[in-house]
Amino acid sequence: MRRDDRDDPFDEFFRELERMMNDVMGAGGDVHIEQSGADYGADLHLDVHETDEAVRVVADVPGVDKDAIDLKCDGEVLTIKAAADQRDYGERVRLPAHVDEHSANATYNNGILEVSFTRSEDASDISLD
């Protein structure tokens, strides 16, 4: 007995999946990623962890050389830019607490970027004379 593909409940799903894969792979089989013209590139997957003493940002930045990562912080926002052969990454992360940007410690290992800061006081006491 011959199977009729029109009765396959997953047939439409697999056709759509194949169409999307062909769109992504392009004619030459290479993945093509189009940038939207924004100041920053592809979004990063990242997590922000906060304790009473520190703030830590962990981001997935695969396929990037360590020297191609640019980090900037003003105490409230961490800006991450990174360039790889196939794509550019960029993200501005509003930190959950004010940090001492000079206390930054960054590591990059196997595509994982980790940046940690010491929390600073949100406000300073002002003494009256």
Score class of each variant (00 low, 15 high):
M1G: 15
R2Y: 15
R2I: 14
R3A: 15
D4W: 12
D5I: 15
D5T: 13
R6Q: 11
D7A: 14
D7R: 12
P9H: 02
P9G: 03
F10Y: 02
F10I: 09
D11Y: 01
E12D: 14
R15D: 08
R15Q: 11
E16T: 13
M20Q: 13
M21W: 03
M21T: 04
N22Y: 10
D23L: 06
D23P: 04
D23Y: 06
G26M: 02
G26I: 07
A27H: 07
G28N: 04
G28F: 09
G28L: 09
G28E: 09
D30T: 09
D30P: 03
V31H: 03
V31C: 09
H32I: 07
E34S: 07
E34V: 13
E34Q: 14
Q35T: 02
S36H: 05
G37H: 00
G37E: 02
A38L: 05
D39H: 00
Y40M: 07
G41T: 04
D43N: 06
L44F: 05
H45D: 15
L46D: 11
L46I: 10
E50V: 02
E50H: 08
E50T: 05
D52H: 12
D52R: 13
A54S: 14
R56T: 15
V57M: 00
V58K: 00
A59M: 05
A59S: 11
D60C: 04
D60V: 12
V61F: 12
V61H: 05
P62Y: 04
G63Y: 02
V64Q: 10
V64N: 04
K66W: 09
K66M: 01
A68I: 10
A68V: 06
A68Q: 02
I69V: 06
I69A: 03
D70R: 06
D70M: 05
L71D: 03
E76V: 12
E76I: 08
T79M: 08
T79I: 02
I80L: 08
K81L: 04
A82K: 06
A82C: 01
A83F: 13
D85P: 02
D85H: 05
D85K: 10
R87D: 00
R87W: 13
G90R: 00
E91C: 08
E91Q: 12
E91Y: 01
R92Y: 02
V93H: 06
L95R: 04
L95A: 02
L95M: 05
P96F: 10
P96W: 13
A97Q: 11
V99L: 09
E101N: 12
E101G: 11
S103R: 10
A106E: 08
A106N: 04
Y108P: 09
N110C: 10
G111K: 07
I112H: 11
I112T: 14
L113T: 06
E114D: 05
V115M: 00
S116I: 12
F117Q: 05
T118Q: 15
R119L: 14
R119Q: 07
S124A: 07
D125C: 02
I126P: 00
S127G: 01
L128F: 10
D129H: 08
